[in-house]
């Protein structure tokens, strides 16, 4: 692995983790979408760099899908949905920003400790890449847990998925990466359509315990 190849890959993957943190503290939906689009751009750059370094042309397809779909189409669609459904623009957090960021730091530390120790036999690039990818995955999950709003849950899921695509692109010579990214895009598209069609704006949580009982089918 040449020095420059490694440094650029490292920089881009580290950028993804940084943007995951930025996603955690956004408190406006539109700003959240913009930051997510930025993450998708960095992801596609990162995948394209892997394609160049590994000399794997099919990864350019994955990079293109990531860019077109997640940096352009999905953010635009979500912008329109927010406008049309009149969803509250503020993001409601279950947990405050401070504890969330601390939890995020702990998760990154965890994934670095786990991956750096484990993947010592794999080559250095793959090892660091996996550690960053796991961080992005865990931060995405954290975001899904701490947000109430359906749109920000979708954004959390997509950022989780960015981590997976990063890991798949970093695993040198892995087959089916393009197919997997297409399968994921279908999944995400359906979530977004679902949010739009069924006007899911909240996570079905309500302080009214009676309504909750009705949902559970346990009311008599």
């Amino acid at each position: 692995m040449k020095g420059l190849d490694f440094d650029v890959a490292h920089l881009l993957a580290g950028g993804l983790v940084l943007i995951s943190f930025m996603l955690l503290y956004q408190n406006r939906l539109y700003a959240l979408l913009n930051v997510f689009a930025l993450q998708a751009v960095v992801l596609s750059l990162s995948v394209a760099w892997q394609a160049y370094v590994q000399d794997a042309n099919h990864l350019y397809v994955t990079a293109a899908i990531a860019f077109a779909f997640k940096a352009v189409i999905i953010p635009l669609a979500l912008h329109r949905i927010i406008a049309e459904l009149g969803i509250q623009r503020d993001v409601e957090n279950v947990v405050g920003v401070g504890p969330t960021m601390l939890a995020g730091l702990a998760l990154v530390a965890l994934s670095e400790v786990v991956m750096l120790r484990i993947a010592s036999e794999a080559d250095v690039l793959a090892q660091e890449d996996l550690a960053f990818a796991l961080s992005v995955v865990l931060l995405g999950m954290l975001m899904m847990v701490v947000r109430r709003n359906a749109v920000s849950m979708v954004v959390g899921f997509m950022s989780l998925e960015n981590g997976l695509i990063l890991a798949a692109a970093g695993a040198k010579g892995m087959p089916l990466v393009v197919e997997i990214s297409v399968a994921f895009s279908v999944l995400v598209a359906l979530v977004v359509i679902g949010v739009f069609l069924f006007r899911i704006s909240e996570r079905f949580e309500t302080v009214d315990a009676h309504a909750l009982d009705r949902f559970r089918g346990d009311q008599r």
Binding site: A126, A150, L160, L164, A167, A171, F204
Partner: peptide, 23 residues
């Protein structure tokens, strides 16, 4: 929706595991 969100996170974790097996 609940099935979707939980199922998606589940299969996302499974994909990470699959990538690790490949590694």
């Amino acid at each position: 929706w609940k099935y979707f969100i939980l199922g998606s996170v589940g299969i996302a974790l499974a994909l990470f595991g699959t990538i690790l097996v490949y590694m």
